[in-house]
Write a protein that binds this DNA or RNA. Structure first.
Lengths: 213, 213, 213, 213
DNA sequence: GATGAATGAGGATTCATTCAT
DNA sequence: GATGAATGAATCCTCATTCAT
């Protein structure tokens, strides 16, 4: 019983450090952020951070992986809602909006920013985020598009390319609009962008005649 | 004469520092890079760097602006080649490829990475890169698309959105393929991606019937 | 039975820690060596070390005393072999060689090095080693020399001084030859040095005419 | 002129750091001593220490070398006074006393203690002290003894061994008496020890009949 | 204007020690 | 009694920045 408490305490502490690390790194940048700040944010002693994670670099990796995993799960859930049921356009718009939400999540932006920042020093971060998360989402999306094509609802030959393009249409405009995640975009505009992306996508790959933008 | 030489020496030195700064910052990251390293790369004394640029932050800004300006010019030149002459698809593919080249340029990647890295600390970098460069390219592209629409070659109502989507189709797939600029992509694949982007774009916005992918 | 086992386990553990401590301190230096390293070498948890010895300083003292005791015993055994029986020169050479062996023992060197290192911080180490060991060896040697003088085999008035000088002749040249214990000296050279020391000693204090070196 | 001032300032600072380093290391031990303390003692900023010497280890080496050089010079001067002029015993006693003074010098003790302490971590310190100083003194002493032997004043075949033994007789008893340099020995006792050492030496290697101790 | 030297503030990391179990 | 985890103080070293020349 008390054993559980301790174990829990340990786990909690580890998790608290991971959360704190990501928060602080996201806020101040990896290089600028002090391990002191992480420890303070987590409410533990600096040495405890080192006991758990060895060094700052490894701490970043761990925090990274944790957030990337969350993001992966959220993205996957969104993609998995892309089935053939109901109206295709509506479904695509709904899924697209969900993906946009994932993309705009504060921690997602932070993840991408941190990765870009440290890419040249810590190239393996890219594997964590891209190979273990982004690529898999893309593959899953390609799978769904392929099934829709098989079902005669879409017209495409390279599902991975189509997935990439759909993702591109959904996400890329957000870079400018949100100023790389530093500016909120009203829900309404998101909806509009999702519609526009899906519209373009369907004009290119849909079977039904598309409407004008 | 010696005056000229000196003045030239001064200008050269300034330029050398800017180049060195960008190189070093790109290689090691802004925070990790020491002003020593920049000075060494430029072949001047550390104090000279301070004489010219005051402090490290300002040095980054200046180096940033210089590179952003170059990138802007290159992008603008590419966009300006998008006229109504000749076959539209060919033209779009050619311009698209040129834009991709700009996007893939090593210094461009470095620019975006550095910006992402320092965004939270130095938000004004974003203005330099986005407002003074990316946005203007997008507007110019929108202009050209608008003229093509007016000329009856394209069918679109929101040229800025169309420009964003074209840019999205061109650039976003590169993020994955080049692993954020850390991996070369063969010219052939670039060409293929450009074709695919333009194909999708034309199916959505073209007047002529589009071919299959 | 289990009580015995446990008690034995405890004693073994204590001894293991002492051995480990001396080994680690000798290898890495007292200040540089971590208590972690000692615990690891002993195969126990760090806290166990503290349970047994209270703090690092005390651990050093205990480890020190243990090794000093061993060294004392070995030295005493050598000195006690210095009796009047048989040929005096041979006996002196044999005892001298034995003392040299003690002096050259790896742990002896470590003892002296550690003591030198910590002398200013922990002056009481000197008492452990010198007063409780070296001085007693010297007194014992003086005793034996005095008896030999009484027996008419040696000619000396201050046996302690003679003992010091004999010890000096035996040990001091080893400092240079072994480079303070970091270099092995071949047995043959040891023998030669012992002979030379005894020869000089006998020329100064012997009654029989001495040979040339 | 002002240039001289600067250069002088720099040299002074360097020398001040070296002095301070040796003082602090000797007082607190190399490992325990902080570079802060050295800087404070020298009256400079910590970073200045690093500017001059790179790291702590190198600082130790430099401080070491400086003190070793002084010690070498003092020892050499003493040895060089060992000529054939005048009464041999008196001369030897005088030189012996001078060597003892060198040996007992506070900085000499510190040098040997520091070396012993750090020997296993920084084996090259031994070269600085032994090869570059102690060995040379011994050779010089051997030279002088050889000349005395040639001149018929001493009777010896291996001058280096004789030198080692003379040095042994002079120095080794001091280890005990001064408790490794932590206790003052009155001048009178030094004189007595020098006499005793020389007496034993002359009995072994002299040509004139030796007196009783 | 360019430089070498100096500095103060700060950052990553280690370590002796304690405590709850 | 033995342990794993936690901690606070210290330590080495770096770096942006300034000054005298």
């Amino acid at each position: 019983m008390s054993g559980t408490t301790v174990a829990r305490g340990r786990i909690d502490k580890r998790q608290a450090i991971l959360d704190a690390a990501f928060t602080v790194f996201a806020r101040e940048g990896y290089a600028q952020a002090g391990v002191d700040a992480v420890a303070a944010e987590a409410g533990v002693a600096k040495a405890t951070v080192y006991n758990h994670f060895g060094d700052k670099e490894n701490l970043l990796r761990a925090a990274f992986a944790a957030v990337a995993e969350d993001a992966l799960a959220k993205n996957m859930a969104a993609v998995e809602r892309l089935t053939g049921e109901g109206d295709l356009r509506e479904r695509l718009e709904s899924v697209g909006l969900a993906l946009m939400d994932c993309y705009c999540d504060e921690r997602s932006w932070a993840l991408r920013r941190l990765m870009a920042a440290e890419l040249s020093q810590l190239p393996d971060l890219l594997d964590i985020v891209q190979r273990r998360a982004a690529d898999r989402v893309m593959e899953a999306l390609a799978d769904r598009l392929a099934r829709l094509a098989l079902a005669g609802r879409l017209q495409l030959t390279d599902p991975l390319l189509a997935a990439e393009q759909l993702a591109a249409l959904l996400s890329a405009p957000l870079d400018r609009r949100t100023r790389l995640g530093t500016q909120e975009v009203p829900e309404e505009e998101l909806r509009h962008l999702a519609k526009a992306a899906v519209d373009t996508f369907l004009r290119a790959f849909g079977k039904e005649p598309a409407e004008a933008v």
